[in-house]
Design a protein around this nucleic acid. Structure first.
Lengths: 226, 226
DNA sequence: GAGTTGTGTCACCAAACTGTGACATGGCGT
DNA sequence: ACGCCATGTCACAGTTTGGTGACACAACTC
């Protein structure tokens, strides 16, 4: 099991140090803060693997941190709540938390929850995305089609990943040129088209009738799974 | 908080009515069925915002419904499963469910899950607007009528989007020419009319008696849902 | 340095799109 | 009922757009 970079946010110093100590002893790498503001900074700059947030915090509370984090990232979140209040559970889930734990919590239980959430996050929202026969492994930067590995060149891969990052959305050529190539200028060029064409030749069973990358005439391209 | 059009599928009548009642009380608009077949029909014709499917159903089961729905749309799905069986969870997630809930379920918890899934779907998927049977997805630049995708050409789409951006407002031809085309000049032409006509031919059930795009004689056109 | 791979560009073609004008239709005031 | 004028309808040809294959050059490998 991987050792996680955990962000712990808890305003009560005694609980905080106790949990930090316990989690560290269990092999996690922990950073802890007392306030939501600090937590958000940390998340933005350090990209922890999981955040454990006390619901009750001075200033920005845990639920609010959770909500903001969710808007910007898939970072897994566990909320700590003081009582087994159903209401808190509801609010927490609404904010998009992956799990919630009622205090006081056995370190061993918390550890199990963390691992469970991480495991879930890893398999669900991991580096690997599957669209029918097409599997895109963002970690290994590998693409396979019906089990066979497909070789994509760096540019092709960047373009495909960009399209896949926004499944179902139409991305226009200007945007793609900017993001994949960094051409801020150059309005017109067949570059994107040519690259799409090359990707299609590799991943589409019938490039003339594409299933993955669809052309939206006059606008751009859309990746949408079959 | 938005009220959702929920499709509930559960074969046990007592559970079904109980959940339907609870969800309705929480402000949702619920339609329920006992079988997967009915559910698929409903989905195709009525376009609910979210489907809650019991995994165990006679005939087409929940997982299968989920799988088929996923093939055709981004409709959010929550699966109801009888036991906390890990296997079910895995199968459910593989079929593309957004969440799964173990029965018996607290209505309040289910409500929270629904809202969480809807929120996620809303932010992940694009912004789409629904007018009865007509769904306009501005991110995917897709228009569907009663579930069937309608192909619009770029100009038609731009015009429709412009009309839809101001529902209920009358937009005159000069304005439309300026915004949709870039004609600052050319006051008179049948251009707008022709384009409206083409859109109507595609989205209006009876183009002679339009329900979406109304002509306001002497002024222009108004988009207003039926 | 020779060969290999990756990338941008171009020209050409087919298909899709669109503006146009002539004509039909229908609403509205008289 | 009549005529006027705004709008609907339609076909077509010119234009635009994207697909495609060829190619040149750069980058990289050995």
């Amino acid at each position: 099991m991987r050792v996680a970079g955990i962000l712990l946010v808890e305003d009560d110093p005694s609980v905080r140090t106790a949990l930090e100590l316990a989690l560290t002893r269990q092999g996690h790498s922990v950073t802890s803060y007392a306030t939501g503001e600090e937590a958000l900074d940390h998340i933005r700059s350090r990209r922890p693997e999981i955040a454990i947030l006390d619901v009750m915090l001075p200033g920005i509370d845990g639920v609010e941190v959770c909500r903001r984090v969710r808007k910007l990232d898939q970072l897994p979140v566990i909320l700590l709540t003081a009582r087994g209040d159903d209401l808190d559970v509801v609010v927490g889930l609404e904010a998009g938390a992956d799990d919630y734990v009622v205090k006081p919590v056995e370190p061993r239980v918390l550890d199990a929850r963390i691992r469970a959430v991480l495991r879930r996050a890893e398999s669900a929202a991991s580096d690997r995305i599957t669209f029918g026969d097409l599997v895109i492994d963002r970690g290994a930067l590998k693409v396979t089609l019906a089990g066979k590995e497909i070789h994509l060149t760096p540019t092709e891969l960047r373009l495909l990943l960009e399209l896949v990052r926004h499944p179902g959305q139409v991305l226009n050529r200007r945007y793609l040129l900017r993001v994949v190539w960094d051409h801020t200028h150059i309005a017109d060029s067949r570059l994107v088209d040519a690259c799409v064409q090359r990707i299609r030749a590799k991943i589409e069973p019938r490039p003339a009738a594409p299933v993955f990358i669809h052309t939206v005439r006059g606008f751009g391209y859309r990746f949408s799974p079959p």
